[in-house]
Design a protein around this nucleic acid. Structure first.
Length: 286
DNA sequence: CCTTAATCCTGGAAGC
DNA sequence: TGCTTCCAGGATTAAG
């Protein structure tokens, strides 16, 4: 499922395929995946894709004039959230692209290429805004700092206010944006922290160890093309490779890569959680 | 404050 | 083989 590393790979893929391209037309095959105004113009038809930004697991396709590096105040903007099974694909001109029933929106570019939003389970969607500023003030303002840029001070301050388990706290996009079930489990393992550990009991010292490890983990996952469990593919349709390097996610019952003990599985905050009771000790364990 | 659960949804896997 | 059942989860919302 697309978390920060997968979404970042999509962003990188779109940078050298659709950024700078003029959108000739937009085909809306399933209007209900679009939140907000859904005329072709609201989806950047007739505009040029000026830049693509990411915040946590979400992307912003911003229209505007390429020459003007400043964000245009009145340039429409589309926020893309891939949810569980969403994908943004790019098809070069001449490719025989046959949209299936889960392909909901198709953008046609002036160079003959096409961009398609597909999402079988429709947990994702598109949100339209009159400007990037509106997206930031109405939607992205609710997100915490991005997991790649958050500082130890910021994270520690947020964690101190949460008595819930670390697993639940790190999944909260309002505290820190970008982590999902896979990378939270991997991160807690990499730090030797129990997913049950109350967030408020994590010391500044521990957060100072966690933040650089989190950045390293996410950067390695980005470099590996992200994790493909079933659905995730990049804009070219390629699967990721990081799933082969998961230490704990999806490996309950298998030996811990560190100590060899069988990995435990539990449910925390409604999410399947895998961890090592030996390497990730906690004062109280369920 | 907290937690759990339901909700949205499809498809793959497991069970009978 | 063919049917039913369960399960995966991101984010939000409701209920306990």
């Amino acid at each position: 499922m697309p978390e920060l590393p997968e979404v970042e790979n999509v962003r990188l893929g779109l940078l050298h395929t659709v950024v700078g391209q003029h959108i000739v037309s937009v085909s809306i095959r399933r209007p209900d995946v679009i939140h907000g105004p859904r005329r072709p113009n609201d989806l950047l038809s007739g505009r040029t894709v000026a830049q693509i930004e990411r915040s946590g697991k979400q992307l912003a396709l911003q229209s505007g004039c390429l020459d003007d590096r400043k964000r245009a105040n009145n340039a429409p903007c589309v926020c893309v959230h891939l949810g569980m099974t969403g994908s943004l694909r790019y098809y070069t001109s001449g490719i025989d692209f046959k949209p299936d029933l889960h392909t909901h929106v198709i953008w046609r570019l002036e160079n003959g290429g096409q961009m398609a939003f597909r999402d079988p389970r429709r947990f994702g969607g598109l949100w339209t805004y009159a400007s990037a500023g509106e997206l930031f003030s109405q939607r992205w303002s609710r997100l915490g700092e991005d997991a790649l840029t958050i500082t130890a001070t910021q994270l520690h301050a947020g964690l101190q206010r949460i008595r819930r388990p670390m697993k639940a706290a790190l999944l909260n996009q309002g505290l820190i944006a970008g982590l999902g079930n896979i990378y939270v489990d991997e991160l807690l393992f990499a730090c030797g922290l129990s997913p049950f550990q109350p967030a408020s009991e994590i010391s500044m010292r521990q957060v100072c160890r966690l933040v650089p490890r989190m950045r390293r983990l996410l950067r390695q996952a980005i470099r590996s093309g992200g994790s493909t469990l079933r659905d995730y593919v990049d804009v070219q349709g390629r699967s990721g490779g990081y799933q082969h390097r998961h230490a704990v996610y999806g490996r309950s019952g298998q030996p811990c890569p560190c100590c060899g003990l069988s990995l435990s599985r539990s449910r925390i905050a409604g999410r399947t959680t895998v961890w090592c009771t030996s390497c990730q000790a906690c004062v109280e364990q369920k």
